[in-house]
Design a protein around this nucleic acid. Structure first.
Lengths: 137, 137
DNA sequence: AGAAATTTGTCCGTATGTATC
DNA sequence: AGATACATACGGACAAATTTC
């Protein structure tokens, strides 16, 4: 079977099925997924197809793979998050000025959000917006 | 020679080489990359390996693929108008280094998302993360 | 300590489907 | 219509990391 030509490709269907098993708790947090060899037997597809399905789950954060060990659902402990926010006004650098089509140095509203996971900074999100000249209402 | 097993996988070495050609301007903005068949001949690898290398560049924002057309380096205009999301690696400045508790200059994964409203840039979101130790891709 | 088994990672070659020029 | 190129899928092989015996 080269290409199904019906609806979704098989690797996506398999990804949907595995995602469902993780979300439903059938595969609990931290637990290993069945090995690729097992999944190829269950779904009767080539290993490459299984690997592609798992790659989708990895990108979505539903799975973590480790060489020689296996692929497992993310543990819940890692999901403990805590965020703080801060807002300030900053001049636009060349890149931002180009994006917004304004002169460099134009003041922008910048909001920085710091997300911590298990007391360690995990992600820093910075949001830039044009400063409204007149409140539009 | 199935797998060289030395250092980086070949698809990454090839991705590095192609990225260099784009950054150096050898492949100018907007220009098509050599055809997959050409790259296959040049690097003497299978198509799948070339495709994986190009997939890396796509994720980094260094290449855009269009079905039936080809893969090209992003034009400057495209970065403003088209690219809604781009991922790159940047050294941490003093502020970010302090937050993440790493040395300044440590490479971070930065993802920039541009949100437009009626053809005008509305918000720019930049997300910074530590580079994972075990890149599962 | 060490060998074997398991599991993911990489790569090859081929084939067919589908979209664009 | 034909050429080109991407998308999906198969099966086989070896490498490398981890676990198990």
């Amino acid at each position: 079977m080269p290409t199904p030509s019906y609806g979704q490709p098989r690797y996506r269907v398999i990804a949907d099925e595995l995602r469902e098993r993780i979300e439903s708790g059938l595969i609990p947090p931290g637990a290993l997924l069945p090995a690729e060899s097992v999944l190829t037997a269950e779904f009767r597809v080539a290993r490459g197809t299984i690997r592609k399905a798992i790659a989708v789950l990895r990108e979505e954060g539903y799975a973590i793979s480790e060489h020689g060990r296996g692929t497992y659902a993310p543990a819940q402990a890692d999901r403990r998050v805590d965020a703080s926010e801060q807002q300030q006004e900053l001049p636009a650098d060349a890149h931002l000025a180009d994006l917004f089509k304004v002169a460099p140095g134009t003041m922008l509203v910048a909001r920085t959000t710091v997300i911590r996971r298990s007391n360690q900074v995990d992600t820093v999100v910075r949001t830039y917006r044009l400063r409204p000249k007149h409140p539009s209402r």
